[in-house]
Every structure is written in structure tokens, then in C-alpha cells.
């Protein structure tokens, strides 16, 4: 197999003659470790070799852990969207209730004043009204 190395918009090239058998093995190694042949050739041509001494057992463990993590993420993402939707509409309901209640509380204060009655304590409700009126999207 002839491997011709050229540059864009530049004349001249470098050719390497690689025996077909060796090229097939190079392709096979690329496939085995998840690299395209162009990537393998770039490593050979430009980056040189490194030696990290990684055992097969580590690969298996890592790949198993990755698929387990991906499965967990997928499951969580599946639960996430409907819950976000539900929470958003609950918050919108509460915002509408807050609008209605702030009007009703104002009326209650006015009526009590006119009747000479003491003001009622709405501090707990008013806290919630303020919270939901300023709600944008907590999801």
C-alpha cells in the first residue's frame, strides 16, 4: 500500500510504501481501539508512539462503568422532563392563586378597617404570595 502524504495548496509529496499485510494490521488495530485509519496514520506520521502499559482488565472495567453511568443518566433524564413540566405548572397555579389572594387580602384589610376590627395576620400567606409572584422558572 502506497501512502502519499501531501499538503493543501502546496506542491510536493512524501510517499511511504507499507506492505499490504502490515497496512491491514494497522487498520485492524485502529478498528480495535476505536480509531479511523486517517487518525491512526496521523498518529504514525505526526505524533509518534507512547507507552502507557494499560491492561485489558482496566479497559473492561472502564467500559462497564461507562455503560452503567450512561444508563443511570438516561434513566434520570427520563424522569427529569415530566417532573420539570409538572413543577412548572404547579408553580403557575400557585402564581394565579397568589394574584387572587393578594386582592382578597387587600379587601379583607379594607373591610376590617371599615368595621373597626383588628387587622388579621397574613404574614405566612404573604410570604408565599411574594415567592410565587416573583417566580420565573426554578427548574
Amino acid at each position: 500500500m502506497k501512502i502519499r502524504v501531501k499538503a493543501k495548496r502546496r506542491r510536493g509529496k512524501v510517499t511511504f510504501n507499507v506492505p499490504d499485510e502490515a497496512f491491514k494490521r494497522i487498520e485492524g488495530l485502529g478498528k480495535r481501539y476505536g480509531f479511523r485509519i486517517e487518525e491512526v496514520l496521523r498518529i504514525i506520521l505526526l505524533h509518534g508512539y507512547i507507552d502507557g502499559e494499560k491492561g485489558e482488565a482496566n479497559f473492561g472495567t472502564l467500559e462497564e462503568e461507562i455503560s452503567e453511568l450512561e444508563r443511570a443518566l438516561y434513566e434520570l433524564e427520563g424522569k427529569w422532563s415530566p417532573l420539570k413540566f409538572k413543577s412548572y405548572y404547579l408553580a403557575m397555579d400557585n402564581q394565579n392563586l397568589a394574584i387572587q389572594l393578594s386582592g382578597m387580602i387587600a379587601e379583607n384589610k379594607r373591610l376590617r378597617k371599615m368595621l373597626g376590627k383588628p387587622e388579621r395576620d397574613f404574614s405566612d400567606v404573604e410570604g408565599l404570595i411574594h415567592y410565587y409572584l416573583s417566580f420565573k422558572n426554578k427548574g
Binding site: I26, L29, G30, R32, Y33, G34, F35, V40, I43, I44, Y49, I50, D51, G52, E53, K54, N58, F59, L62, E63, I66
Partner: peptide, 14 residues
Amino acid sequence: GLEKTLKTLRFGYL
């Protein structure tokens, strides 16, 4: 040498 390199790179990626 190529195999060790690819193995190391793959391991690094994983």
C-alpha cells in the same frame, strides 16, 4: 509500538 500507543490513547479517552 502502535498498538501500545492506541491502547494508551483509548484508555485516556475512556
